[in-house]
Amino acid sequence: MFSGLWYSLKKAVVQIFRNKGMSIASLFSITAMLLILALFFAFTVNVNYLTEQVKDEFNTIVLFLYDDATTEDAYKIATSIESMEQVDSVKYVSKETAMEEFKHSWGDNAYLLDSLAENPLPNSLRVELADIQGGSLVAQVAYGFSSVEDVRFYREEVDKVLKISSVIQKSALVVIVFLVIVSVMVVSNTVKLTVLARQEEIEIMKYIGATNWFVRGPMFVEGMLIGLISALIALGIASILYVKLEAGLQVDMMTLFATTLVDSKFVIINFAWIFVALGVSIGACGSIISMRKFLKV
């Protein structure tokens, strides 16, 4: 068994070099397909990531309290809101703390706030949601307390982001499935051409008394090897491009979305296993499918 595998591997390598034209054609088509796939994968992963960031950002509901509400009132509200299953945690922020934070966000210009005679900010409760969809329910409950003056949350914004990202995810999935199908077709056609060119060769092998597996083995390994090499080429190109893109977009992304692209290490690791798995199986399937009908001599 092992010597059979070794034999196939050696034959496959020799054949790949001697059939340069066909090998390069298969190599090129698999690599191209994997790269297009990489583009959509990277896009989807980043949209997901951005959505998560946005969700986190909008995960907070702020309940503003009337000035005459006591800390005890605030505590009561906090306990009952915190017991809701949609809620992760509730934090009391006094008007003084709020002012501190406000000043902090003004940075060097904070001194301008010193002239305020009185702190205009209200005491508040910051509610971290466990489930972003539960926002409106929590708001509704909060309005029921007489000490709650106002509730601020980002229902519409969140809904919009979720809707857009779900549309993007779904269409990317459709495109990826479509691409995989197309690439299997393209590759199996390329391999079919290779096998067609070898039809005579296969016949001769059968005349000499070769078993089907003796003929198939090296071609099978050859398909997998071409798939593997394509995967590695695609991985190299995609990784370099992604790292470049990540560096190039860093500043723009930061100002626009207050975040960066998904970490290149994560993306590249995923590229690696997706490409290798897909490339090898496309190569193997391609050669098996296209060889079947020629082995009946």
């Binding site: 054949q15 005579e200 060769e201 016949e203 001769i204 059968k206």
Partner: peptide, 20 residues
């Protein structure tokens, strides 16, 4: 069939060598 064919040596008009 493969073992059977191994006891027959075939020779053809067009030689039928493996080109590669």
């Amino acid at each position: 069939i493969p073992p059977f064919r191994r006891q027959i040596g075939m020779v053809f008009q067009d030689f039928r060598l493996l080109p590669n």
